[in-house]
Design a protein around this nucleic acid. Structure first.
Lengths: 110, 110
DNA sequence: CAGGATCCAGCAAGATACTG
DNA sequence: CAGTATCTTGCTGGATCCTG
C-alpha cells in the first residue's frame, strides 16, 4: 500500500485548506490581489467585517506566511498588508476553483 | 472596469468553496475517491465523525451534486454513496492544493 | 489609524436515545 | 443498516468600548 504517499498528499492539501478557512479568509485574499492595503481600507472594501474578525484573519494569514504585515513609523502609525509570494501563488488554487465552478455551475439566475 | 467579470469569477470560486465547507466535507470526499461506500462504512473509515455530522455533510454534498446517493431495496435497506462526475472532477482543485502545499510547506517534522 | 479587551448570540458539531 | 430527533456544548464571529 502507498499509504505514506497518501499521507503526504493529505498534509499538503490540509495546509492549503487552512488558508481559506473561516468566513473571511477568501474575501481578504481576494481583496489583496488588487494590491497592498491598509487595515481600515480593507475594512471598507470588505463591507461588513468587524475589527476583531479582520484582525484575526490577518494574523492567521500572516502565520501561514500568506500575508505580509509592514509597519511604517508615521504618526499615526501606518500598517500595510500585502500578499507574499506564497500568497500570490495561491491564486493557482483559486483559478482551478474558478475553472471548476464555471464548468459546473448552472448559475440559475439570481 | 471589468467588475462584471470579477463578479462571475467570484461566484464560480464561491461555488467551489462550498464543496469543502465544514469540518468533514474534505475527509468525506477524500474517502469517496477510493470508491463508493455505505453509510456505516464511511463512518468507520472516517474515525470520529458522528451520525448527525455525516448525515448533514452527505446531504450537503448531494445538494451540490458532488455526491450521489443510491438506495437498494434489500432487507435491511442498503444505501451507497459515490462521487458524481462533478465530484470526481473536483479532484483537479484538490490536486492544485496539493501542488501548492507541497511547494510551500516546510513540513517541520511532527 | 490600527488595533486590544470584553461580552454575547448563533451555529456547528458531538453524545445519546430511538425508529423503519 | 441507515438514519431521525433531541439535548448540550464549544467555537465563530458580530457589537461595543477603550487605547497608543
Amino acid at each position: 500500500m502507498n499509504g505514506n504517499e497518501d499521507f503526504m498528499c493529505l498534509n499538503a492539501v490540509r495546509e492549503a485548506l487552512k488558508v481559506i478557512d473561516g468566513k473571511w479568509a477568501f474575501p481578504v485574499i481576494g481583496q489583496l490581489y488588487y494590491g497592498s492595503q491598509r487595515f481600515n481600507g480593507l475594512r471598507r472594501s470588505l463591507g461588513g467585517i468587524s475589527i476583531k474578525s479582520l484582525t484575526i484573519v490577518l494574523r492567521h494569514l500572516e502565520e501561514l506566511q500568506v500575508v505580509r504585515r509592514q509597519i511604517f513609523p508615521t504618526v499615526p502609525v501606518t500598517v500595510e498588508y500585502s500578499l507574499t509570494e506564497k500568497g500570490r501563488e495561491y491564486r493557482a488554487v483559486l483559478m482551478q476553483m474558478r475553472r471548476w465552478g464555471e464548468k459546473w455551475t448552472i448559475d440559475s439566475g439570481k
